[in-house]
Design a protein around this nucleic acid. Structure first.
Lengths: 122, 122
DNA sequence: TCAAATAGTCTATATTGTAGACTAATTATA
DNA sequence: TATAATTAGTCTACAATATAGACTATTTGA
């Protein structure tokens, strides 16, 4: 993150929509979470198990950001033990289309990628 | 990264193409680099200036990964000072389509995202 | 009485990213 | 002749971020 002389965060004023979107969903987990929510409402622990290798902290953080940005909704039921459900919001639903274009490309080119890939762990 | 009892990296065997693609291009910089190369061959420093807020180390690393995976090519000219050109390879070219679908969505929803976004810096 | 379940948070540690100095070789400029 | 500029990276010390796993509160069921 850039800072100015007073060590304050320089707020990036997003002149560029690509950046704007990538800054939020171009991370390791957001797409996987949105994909998991494609067909079903999900609870925190279910998502945690489904994705498998995400830490609870990152799951929590990423869900907060996705909610904050309007991709998903978070519904709390007054129960014990707690029940919190995450679901796609309008923006998330609309995002499915480009996301699935990407996923389709991934499917179609999976083999080509494996063939092209020379080294593991670069 | 997951490790086993002997502290060796557990090699993720990529049963899932989405993961396979996201693990490589789902980072902060890859899409921006590929987008920069869409219309032009580019040199290292030019990319560095164009993207602006990437460190040289990350640029170097990301370019290596993209080359290794077959998205881009790297051509060295025997000159001094050195001239190294990066260009889209076949896989990179084919990736433009889903990438631009994503970018188009970003453009179209830019406003909605800004409206939905409640908090900066989450 | 004790375990189980849930949705997180907290903390110590491990991993990853950053800025900026540095390199070697040649040309251009003063 | 000395000095600066140029290039594509690498290196290092430091900063930021992610991880694993312990922990919380509350209620139900055994």
């Amino acid at each position: 993150m850039k800072k100015n002389a007073k060590n304050e965060l320089i707020k990036y004023d997003h002149p560029c929509p690509i950046r704007d979107v990538l800054d939020r969903i171009g991370d390791q987990w957001s797409l996987l979470i949105l994909k998991s929510l494609e067909h079903d409402v999900m609870r925190f622990n279910t998502l945690h198990k489904e994705i498998g290798d995400i830490s609870r902290q990152m799951l929590s953080r990423t869900l907060k950001r996705l909610e904050n940005d309007g991709y998903i909704t978070r519904t709390v039921y007054a129960q014990v033990p707690p029940r919190v459900e995450y679901a796609l919001a309008e923006l998330g639903l609309s995002f499915l289309k480009p996301m699935n274009t990407l996923i389709q490309w991934a499917d179609e080119n999976h083999e080509a990628i494996c063939r092209a890939r020379k080294t593991q762990n670069l």
